[in-house]
Amino acid sequence: MQYKLVINGKTLKGETTTKAVDAETAEKAFKQYANDNGVDGVWTYDDATKTFTVTE
């Protein structure tokens, strides 16, 4: 399945996608991506759209 990440950071904004077997695996990949880019915020997930959002 394909999952999307929407980033609403202080210095980084945008979107990225990943393919993963489940939401938990996608979340780990997205959190690593956010961490690598210095984004630390509040996470939400919408199962209907398979979209994670992180807001600083």
Results as ranks from 00 to 15, higher is better:
E24C: 09
A26M: 02
A20H: 05
A26Y: 01
E24V: 11
F30A: 02
K13A: 08
G41C: 02
A23P: 11
T53S: 06
T18E: 05
Y45A: 01
D22H: 05
A23V: 12
E15T: 10
D47G: 08
F30M: 03
A34C: 09
T18P: 02
K19A: 10
D36Y: 08
T18Y: 13
A29W: 15
Y33R: 02
N8I: 15
G41I: 01
E27A: 10
N37W: 12
A29P: 01
N8A: 09
Y33L: 07
T18M: 10
G9Q: 05
V42D: 11
D46Q: 04
D40G: 09
T16F: 15
T49I: 07
D36V: 10
G9T: 15
Q2H: 09
V6D: 04
I7Q: 02
K19D: 12
A20W: 03
K19Y: 15
K4D: 02
D47T: 08
T17N: 07
Y45E: 00
F30E: 00
N35Q: 11
T53H: 06
V21S: 11
V39S: 03
A20D: 03
E24M: 14
Y3E: 01
A26D: 01
V54C: 07
T51N: 02
N37C: 07
E24L: 12
L12A: 06
A29D: 11
E56W: 11
A23D: 05
N35W: 14
K50G: 05
K10R: 09
G14L: 15
A29T: 14
A29E: 12
W43F: 05
K13L: 09
T16N: 06
T55Q: 06
Y3W: 07
E27C: 06
T25L: 09
L5Q: 00
K4S: 08
D40S: 12
V54N: 01
K19T: 15
A29M: 12
T49S: 09
T49M: 06
F52N: 00
N8M: 11
F52L: 01
K13S: 13
T53R: 05
A23G: 04
E56C: 05
T53W: 08
Y3K: 00
W43E: 01
E15L: 04
A26W: 01
K28F: 11
V54F: 03
V6Y: 07
K50Y: 13
T53E: 05
N37F: 13
D40M: 15
I7E: 01
V21H: 12
T11R: 07
A20Y: 06
K13Y: 08
E15F: 07
V6R: 07
T44Y: 08
N8P: 03
F30S: 00
K4R: 14
T16L: 13
N37Y: 13
V42N: 08
K4Y: 10
L12Y: 15
K10C: 07
V54M: 04
G14N: 09
D47M: 09
G9N: 06
Q2C: 10
F30Y: 02
D22W: 03
V54A: 03
M1A: 12
Y45S: 01
T51I: 06
T16W: 15
K50L: 10
Y3G: 00
A29V: 15
W43S: 01
T11L: 13
E15N: 05
Q2D: 13
N35D: 13
T51D: 01
K31E: 04
I7R: 01
T49H: 06
A34Y: 03
G41M: 02
K31C: 04
V6W: 05
A20I: 03
G38D: 07
D36K: 10
D36R: 06
G9R: 04
M1K: 08
T25K: 06
V39C: 04
N8L: 12
A48P: 06
A23E: 08
G41S: 02
E15Q: 07
G9W: 07
Y33D: 02
A26C: 02
A23L: 12
K4N: 08
T49Q: 07
Q2I: 15
K4F: 12
K28D: 05
D40N: 13
Y33S: 02
N37M: 09
T17I: 10
G38R: 06
Y45K: 01
N35F: 13
G9L: 15
T17R: 06
T11N: 14
L5H: 01
I7C: 04
N37E: 09
K50P: 00
V21P: 14
N37K: 15
T55G: 03
K50R: 14
K28E: 07
T51F: 02
K50S: 06
D46E: 08
Q32R: 09
K31N: 04
V6E: 04
T51R: 03
G9Y: 08
T17L: 09
T16S: 10
Q32Y: 05
I7S: 03
T16P: 03
K19V: 14
E24T: 12
W43L: 03
D47C: 06
Y33A: 03
K28H: 12
K28I: 13
